[in-house]
């Protein structure tokens, strides 16, 4: 994969380049500030971009804003956003356009190299990778609303894992239940949320996220 990295911290940037190169990916460009990010994205058109939310010059959310702008011009540009904090507003903005090819992970997750690489691949393929923290914040926000509050505890867990981008088999493993139970839970969730039963994992996540950002 051709990957663009936008990260202002040299240690992390080099670490990411090392990790991705050693996994056989090509890092086509690195950017260390918000101003250069959008031109670089448009120029290199990477298979996936790894972007820090907070970049110079203002150290606020220029990474995120550049990504949102870039995805307006290249709707299918897959982007994995990294942040040291989970900010619900960031996730909502990110998902406001389209939930395909979007990831939002805490920086901490890069330590779990395997999972990080999987998440990156998922995003590059047009899927999603949402940090459990992000999901739980989004869920908390929705907890007072009717449709979600009708879910059982187990169904919430399943929904959260679905939103992270897990497939049924993984969810079953993670929750120590049979895959058939997972299927049943998912059926219940969509019934309760008034959604047509989806056919693919990807579309299923889209549905969940569409609901979450509503």
């Amino acid at each position: 994969m051709r990957i663009l990295i936008a990260e202002d911290n040299a240690l992390l940037r080099e670490g990411l380049v090392l990790l991705l190169n050693s996994e056989g990916h090509e890092v086509c460009a690195t950017v260390d500030n918000g101003d250069d990010l959008l031109p670089a994205l448009l120029e290199h058109r990477p298979d996936v971009a790894v972007v820090d939310v907070r970049l110079p010059p203002t150290f606020r959310d220029e990474g995120l804003r550049a990504v949102v702008e870039a995805r307006k011009q290249m709707p299918n540009l897959p982007v994995l956003v990294l942040s040291q904090y989970v900010e619900r507003a960031y996730a909502t903005e990110l998902l406001a356009q389209s939930a395909s090819g979007v990831g939002y992970l805490l920086k901490d997750r890069v330590g779990r190299a395997e999972e990080f690489l999987h998440a990156l691949e998922r995003v590059a393929d047009g899927g999603t990778a949402m940090d459990p923290e992000v999901i739980s914040q989004l869920m908390v926000r929705r907890a007072g609303d009717d449709p979600l509050s009708s879910l059982t505890q187990r169904e919430r867990e399943v929904l959260a894992l679905m939103a992270e981008g897990r497939n049924n088999g993984t969810i079953a493993e993670m929750l120590f239940i049979a895959e058939s139970s997972v299927n049943k839970h998912i059926g219940n969730i969509f019934a309760k949320l008034n959604m047509p039963t989806p056919d693919s994992g990807h579309r299923r996540v889209l549905a969940v996220l569409t609901y979450l950002r509503a």
Partner: peptide
Amino acid sequence: HDGAQAGIVAVSLRLGMIKR
């Protein structure tokens, strides 16, 4: 944010690479 936190993330990243 720029110092300790980023540094620890970088350490964690290296540890992940070491594991692989």
